[in-house]
Amino acid sequence: MTRVYVLSLALLLSSCAEWGVEPWERDLLAKPEMQLVTDPLEAGLDDHIYFSKEASSGGASFGGGGCGCN
């Protein structure tokens, strides 16, 4: 199973090499609205809400936690 993971990761990395842009092509990617997290406070508040109301948390980062949340 581990081999499969390693192989998949290697494949993913090699296919990633086909993608990408040159440094001068980052005009759109550099915009605030293209960041992975555009509003970190909103992301944190949502983590807190959904951690309290659902049995799932995290995934994007180390989300939720740190409360009794009854």
Partner: peptide, 16 residues
């Protein structure tokens, strides 16, 4: 893993 796909596209894949 975070990957720039092209000038308009960015992708992220995580395992936790």
């Amino acid at each position: 893993i975070t990957q720039v796909v092209n000038r308009q596209t960015l992708m992220q894949l995580n395992y936790s």
